[in-house]
Write a protein that binds this DNA or RNA. Sequence first.
DNA 1: TTGAAAGCGTTACCAT
DNA 2: ATGGTAACGCTTTCAA
Lengths: 337, 337
Amino acid sequence: MKATIYDIAREAGVSIATVSQVINGKGKISEERRNEIMEIMERLNYQPSVIAAALAGKKTYTLGLLVPDISNPFFAEIARAVEDRGHQLGYSLVICSTDNKDERVERYLTLLQQKSIDGMIIGTGMDNKEILNPLVEKQIPIAMIARELPEQAVHTVVVDDYIGGKLAGKHLLQLGHSRFAVLAEQAKVRSSRERVRGFREALAEAGQELPERRVLHCDFVVEDGKRRTLELLAQADRPTALFCCNDLLAIGALQAVKELGLRVPQDLSVIGFDNTILASVTDPPLTTVAQPMEEMGTMAVDLLIQELKKEQPQPKQRTVLRPELIIRQSTGVPGQQ
Amino acid sequence: MKATIYDIAREAGVSIATVSQVINGKGKISEERRNEIMEIMERLNYQPSVIAAALAGKKTYTLGLLVPDISNPFFAEIARAVEDRGHQLGYSLVICSTDNKDERVERYLTLLQQKSIDGMIIGTGMDNKEILNPLVEKQIPIAMIARELPEQAVHTVVVDDYIGGKLAGKHLLQLGHSRFAVLAEQAKVRSSRERVRGFREALAEAGQELPERRVLHCDFVVEDGKRRTLELLAQADRPTALFCCNDLLAIGALQAVKELGLRVPQDLSVIGFDNTILASVTDPPLTTVAQPMEEMGTMAVDLLIQELKKEQPQPKQRTVLRPELIIRQSTGVPGQQ
DNA sequence: TTGAAAGCGTTACCAT
DNA sequence: ATGGTAACGCTTTCAA
């Protein structure tokens, strides 16, 4: 069997309390005792049980990460950043892909609670804003990442979606476009709405309008981006510029244009959002609004850990990072050969 | 405070033993008692502590997944499949990105053990084949995925790398190529070695040779693929066909070709491995050898769960899935315009 | 500086 | 059909 604290204590001829002290570096233990005990732990290959420690009042040193889909490159990169920072600080990461379904969110939430994880990072949207209520009441540390939920008092790390949309709009305007369309995520996704709002505002400031029918809502998958773009391009007065609320949709758009034998950016300029690895490998490489995924992950973890270190609830922070326009080759002057 | 089994018992006027029974659906409890207790649990919003149950001898219902890098699309897709299958069966997933470093592997391994996870799925290579010894001895259920370790008795789910390499070689041969090169992963990665061996064998069967100097070893990142391809194309007698041991390297190759003002496939045919989402969005779309990632993930989980359900150690299975050549547009007849 | 003992929230065995 | 209780492995007072 695995060695327990009792085995160590017996071997060392001391009490388990003493062993516990040296494990946690607490109390006053004589140098020699301490060394002797450490040596025995080494020899018996003793590994303290996190489970038992947690039950006795310590933490589980485990964090939960809720995202729509871990196989989506954007969230995969976020996850990596979160994992790394957590690992540095001694925490493990449980991943939960929600597919943006409230039902899955709730299942994962109760599951994580039953497992007594120390805190959760939430990067998935929810239809029902009250889903988090129970957690907030129980004071379970929460940090939102890449999504926000203003109706809850939780730490938040987001990119300024509004500005991101604006950056996209201005870029397209500057290239001389005048017929725009948008591929948005589902209406319930606030960040998507903000991006569209920023985009529309940029156009408005230039006296241009974005008709509602030119804003198409998609599921978070390539195929849907393609399908909707095909619809868009079938319209008589088709747009010359398309703003997609994430890179995946933009890729779908690229595929649709190709399928119709048209060209990007000559026939349609396409701009994405996120700047995942995908944006750099498309044909043509995708102009996109970059989110600083690594910083976001790191900051969310830091916020969370800082919260659960203190006993007192901390004042909730909302950190807004600035997105950056990455110009590649999927945008250009309309109609140019 | 959170409700415990004692609260429920007190409220229902029964013993905790009885409550435990109804939670686990064991023993004989009268219909009425059972309903009454369930109703109270509902009302008090009782959530049994997995931690406590685990300490008392049950499982933690948590699995560990070790991969080189969760932000790598191949592993992200594997992770999603593993997560889904695990979740269906009631298990959570802790992800661990190892960067292919033994040191990180070991840290994660002890961490996961201390947390008493029920089993681990390992998709990362290791220099030291003995790293797993302690786990195997402790009978901790293990399933290898996409990597193998024949020196250990563990469940394994892999694609036939040798055949995959051969498929790639044959395809290139058939197109009429005669000067080949390979971008391999680090020499310690067995699957990569097997792919190269299969590739070489295909050439040999056609009386062609693959000189050792034409096999370049890379780190698992786009940049390295690019760098090495640049080197390759600088050689006098440069290859017309390049087999890359994963899609990421192939993308690097594509970038290198572009940077030199050359074209794919006219100047260089490129073939990848994995068939991640990346392969479908590159310019040109990448011909690649597909691994059935979803099936692999599902099978690995099933193997693991089946193992940890039984008390007795099970006979270890090795499942080899057949890779499939996906022909897109990055391969063609050499020199063709 | 060290030890005894009371929990932590369950499970499971043995009584009743 | 139900209850009492030891055990799981550890932390943490409180005494000594």
